[in-house]
Amino acid sequence: MKNTTLSFILFSIMFLFAGIQLHASDGGGLKIGDVAPDFSLKNIDGNYVSMSDYEDAAGFIIIFSCNHCPFVVAVEDRMIALHERYAPMGWHLIAINPNDPTVVPDDSFEKMIERAQEKNFPFPYVKDVGQKVFPQYGATRTPHVFLLDSDKVVRYIGAIDDNTRDESAVQEKWLENAIARIMRGMDPDPLETRAIGCTIKVQE
């Protein structure tokens, strides 16, 4: 009996360690089904933005974005259209700029304000000061979309659609389809997509 208990404890400890190791090796980013952490990040209007600020949100379209990347510039108008279409339905788009401005001066807070004014961004464009948020999410590039539902559960990760470069040639609107499916109580399909983007710039 004693032996059994001991081996059970040992086994549990081993299992615990194995679990920790597995978690450490996956890079720490969010997976489909994980609950996304909230944040409090400074918006271009000077106010701090958190997901908890939005009462009765249907969900969140978190897009890691920036000023300088041509693949972001190519989707800026689509981001504006997404906000205009989905914010009234309770889906809030928040653009997070994760780049270190000492590495990319074009991504400074001042330049973010400039870009937002040029494009008339109707959504919050916040700075990941200290670069703590993007690693929690596991964002690797800009643009990189994380679609969260009302419980902040990650439901879709990837690209807005199947043609970053050329909106007129888009055949599949992955993000919009994902929202539509969640609204009907279904899982998005596909759950994850990939696209070319700019690396997130950190101090070497």
Binding site: T140, R141, A159, D162, A169, T193, R194, A195, G197, T199
Partner: peptide
Amino acid sequence: DPAANDWIPKVDESWSGAIP
């Protein structure tokens, strides 16, 4: 080739699509 979602995993299954 805009169909990046198709060809990125063919280059490498682990590639997120960020360059370089």
